[in-house]
Design a protein around this nucleic acid. Structure first.
Length: 253
DNA sequence: ATGTCACAGTCCCTGTGA
């Protein structure tokens, strides 16, 4: 089984790149973030023509998450079941694995109300994962907008006092791991940065100024069956790329 | 350390978010 997560930064703008990538890579499951489109605009039919079922939790101008699968797509749930109007989490069962596509709030700044929202959102995710069925394999992927450790940031000194690296955000990721999940990319690559995002500005990609903020958390059973994890940097190059690259994981199931 | 991109509305530029 081959599972990928990719923040596409508008599926409307990115569809040619996403379609090309799906045809070339044929993941079993793709977790998508920042579709930035309504359900009415989502390319269900185009994906079906490629052999994929889809579930979308669309909002419109902002956010929007999806799960795209060619190994089954059942029991879809959207949101946390509360009154949060932002479309940031969707779950489904694919080939017996419970998969989540998450777009964690950015936070903007440590003194911004949006940062409080980010921490509250992460706390809700932790509660959800802590209450999961332990007998079912789980993959929680997406854009977490947090670099788990300094190794995941090209220059931690530039991020002092900023979001994405603060202690409360990192504690939230530790709480996710404490529910029994493993950051798979880091487990398989303990010493490599494995950046997944580079600012469009300043030639950041070519200068290597990146962050590892797109993560795949898996349960211990899947960790034991994982055979590979990699960042597809090629997808960050070329015409009209997203500012994020896909993260792919492979499992011998 | 801000050199870009995408969106919607004010609609071919500007404000906002990332």
């Amino acid at each position: 089984m081959n599972v990928a997560t990719w923040n596409v930064n508008s599926l409307t703008a990115r569809w040619p790149r996403v379609e090309e990538w799906l045809v070339a890579n044929r993941p079993d499951v793709l977790l998508v973030q920042e579709t930035k489109q309504t359900d009415a605009k989502f390319p269900f039919d185009q994906l079906r023509a490629l052999g994929y079922e889809s579930a979308h939790y669309g909002q419109g101008q902002w956010n929007g998450v999806a799960i795209v699968s060619r190994v089954g797509l059942d029991d879809v749930t959207r949101g946390f079941g509360d009154d949060d109007p932002e479309a940031r989490i969707i779950a489904a069962t694919c080939a017996g694995v419970r998969v989540y596509s998450c777009y964690v709030p950015n936070g903007r700044a440590l003194d911004d109300p949006h940062y409080v929202y980010k921490l509250q959102w992460l706390a809700k995710l932790v509660d959800l994962l802590a209450a999961r069925d332990p007998s079912t394999h789980v993959i929680v992927g997406g854009d977490f907008n947090v670099a788990p450790r300094d190794l995941d940031c090209y220059d931690p000194s530039l991020f002092e006092g900023a979001t994405h690296v603060s202690a409360p955000e990192r504690h939230a990721l530790a709480a996710i791991e404490a529910t029994g999940l493993v950051d798979l990319t880091r487990a398989l690559h303990p010493d490599e940065p494995c950046y997944t995002w580079w600012d469009y500005r300043n030639g950041s990609f070519h200068r290597g100024w990146g962050l590892r903020i797109d993560l795949l958390y898996v349960d211990a059973g899947l960790r034991a069956k994982a055979t590979a994890s990699y960042v597809d940097r090629e997808a960050r190059k070329g015409e009209k790329p997203s500012d994020h690259a896909p993260v792919v994981a492979e499992f011998a199931l």
